[in-house]
């Protein structure tokens, strides 16, 4: 087995463990490349079926391409789609131009997810996060409990060895399952390439720009790139060390920081 085969087989094992252990389970499908790869692996694990709902948290500010892709492939793949929205916040006008962007994310993404988990009483969620994405995620386990407030006690986690995962979920807790934890961004693209996985067109360069991560339209900035095929993307990734998140998170933090510094009289 080559490197990608090993990753694929390990992920399928994890997905099947999660399905066996938890009845009320869903996959969080942001329509990004990672969660779509995860969806692909779920279909492999269950011989073309997706035997649980796919949860899409809709901020209503997503790119049009995302909605189109979601509806097209949900239909083709026979996916039971559950769309979660924070209607209350949306009807009170919340958006990226209101207050600061961090609160917008908090209400339209995090709170929306909390409400949806509450409503459908999911006990476990499959997520496409990777260890190499973000500092704190290096400490993630494959099966990771979260309390009702989504808090994660990373300093005192149960040990996880030899594929023996946390299989008991208590009370209001839900378990986050991370089948792609051991993949890197490059692995994902090489796998998409090998398997020919459909991906939202926003990832591919148009007029010298492409999106390295996708989400809400107002908060995503494209990076300079001429990679208009998966092939070129793999090549680009092998040679650059530019931040994946730099397109979005820093902008938000900057805006928030400016506002705070102004309030403190610095500027």
């Amino acid at each position: 087995m080559d490197h990608l085969d090993k990753l694929e087989n390990q992920s399928i094992y994890i997905i099947r463990e999660a399905y066996k252990q938890f009845k009320d389970i869903a996959i969080l499908w942001s329509i990004g490349k990672d969660s779509t790869t995860l969806m692909w692996l779920v279909r492999k694990a269950f011989y073309g079926k997706v035997p649980f709902p796919a949860l899409h948290i809709d901020t209503s500010y997503k790119f049009n391409e995302i909605y189109e892709f979601r509806d097209e492939w949900a239909k083709k793949w026979g996916i039971k789609l559950v769309v979660g929205k924070n209607d209350q916040s949306l009807s009170s006008g919340m958006g990226p131009d209101q207050q600061d962007k961090l609160s917008c994310c908090g209400q339209l993404k995090t709170d929306a997810l909390k409400q949806t988990i509450d409503k459908y009483r999911y006990k476990a969620l499959l997520l496409g996060i990777r260890r190499d994405e973000h500092g704190i995620r290096a400490k993630e386990r494959v099966f990771s409990p979260r309390n009702k407030q989504f808090q994660w006690d990373y300093k005192d986690q149960p040990p996880e060895l030899w594929d023996q995962f946390k299989n008991k979920q208590q009370g209001e807790q839900h378990i986050r399952v991370h089948p792609l934890l051991h993949w890197t961004e490059l692995d994902i693209w090489m796998y998409i390439h090998r398997e020919n996985i459909p991906i939202v067109s926003l990832y591919f360069a148009r007029d010298g720009k492409r999106y390295r991560s996708i989400g809400c339209e107002p908060c995503c900035a494209p990076v300079d790139s001429n990679a208009d095929t998966v092939d070129k993307m793999v090549e680009e990734l092998k040679t650059t060390k530019v931040s994946e998140r730099s397109g979005r998170a820093q902008d938000k933090e900057r805006a928030y920081m400016m506002q705070k510094l102004r309030a403190l009289g610095y500027m």
């Binding site: 260890r131 500092g135 290096a138 890197t184 060390k241 931040s243 730099s246």
Partner: peptide, 15 residues
Amino acid sequence: LEEERDQGITIDTAQ
């Protein structure tokens, strides 16, 4: 490096 990862550079001290 640990901190840098938060700025998105793909290096991970645990692996």
